[in-house]
Design a protein around this nucleic acid. Sequence first.
DNA 1: GCGACAG
DNA 2: ATCTTGTCGC
Length: 226
Amino acid sequence: MDIKRQQEFPHNPALAEALQTQLAHQIEITQGPDQARLIGAADVAYHKHQNIAYAAVILYDMQSHTVLEEASWIGEPEYPYTSGLFSLREAPLLLRAFAQFKRTPEALLIDGHGIAHPRRFGLASHLGWSLDIPTVGVSKTPFFGDHAPVGDQRGDQAPITDQGQIIGLSLCTQPHTKPVYVSPAHRFDMQSAYTFVLRCCTRYRQPEPLRKAHDLSIRLRATTPL
DNA sequence: GCGACAG
DNA sequence: ATCTTGTCGC
């Protein structure tokens, strides 16, 4: 598949943040697909001691519940980990992995945040914008915004807000389980993101496609000789 | 100044 | 992210 938008980022944090603010204007918060069958998902694992990232992407078929494609990119991240500038670190690697897909996903699930970000441009938004595919961010931990406690029944939700604006939601995906933190990233709105993520969480807390992507990243690390 | 801080 | 085992509870 092709990458619609490429963007170099300055290494200077203040300049990179300013660019995020600019690009956020191009993020579209609109209703996402409601019956997407081909779901792309991404995750990254890291080497224990060396500065090596294992970027993994998979294409998941919601109809057969199987992985149709796997792709990866192994390399040294160009940026250090910086909270708020996280996408600078992982997006370039993941894009090189996505570029290898034969088919184009109808929607993406990314391990990270979308617009629940200080400048509304988290990793998921960065990737959704670059590929111009409807995308939702799903994180295991909160990052930005205020969130009230949420119930522990599947489907229970509570908004994540920033200055009165709803930028995401805490979502319980399985009974008696900690919530995940969902935010629209690009071409999804809050309602469709909620439905989409819940539909992808069949047996575990995390959406199935994300679990498969995580599994691939770990597998790559274990099987790739240095 | 101090603590917090997606992965 | 990574370092790390078993264990208690729904």
